[in-house]
Amino acid sequence: MDTSYPLTVENCPLDEDMAITAIDVDERHRFRMLELGLRAGTVIRVVQRANFGGRVVARGTERIALDGRTASRITVAPAAG
């Protein structure tokens, strides 16, 4: 895997478990992400690619749509196990 670019929700493979490592948005929106259930350590799966880099992530039975810019600011790593 090319490690020169950080793995993000935008560029990570579909349908694979990923753990969020960081969310690089401003503070108030980072907290909103947290309230949506997206925070460091959360295991998610990208289940759909939409236009302009938009992504739908799955967390259990929940589905959360993110615009491309936001998706590119959530860094992830393959989830253990």
């Binding site: 295991v43 289940v47 759909q48 939409a50 236009n51 739908v56 799955a58 259990g60 039975t61 589905r63």
Partner: peptide
């Protein structure tokens, strides 16, 4: 527990949120 699986909504979204077909 996180009962994670592909749902009917996911299948519909593959069309309706597709970068081209969605629009």
């Amino acid at each position: 527990h996180a009962r994670d699986r592909v749902t009917v909504s996911d299948r519909i979204d593959r069309v309706l949120l597709n970068p081209v077909f969605g629009v």
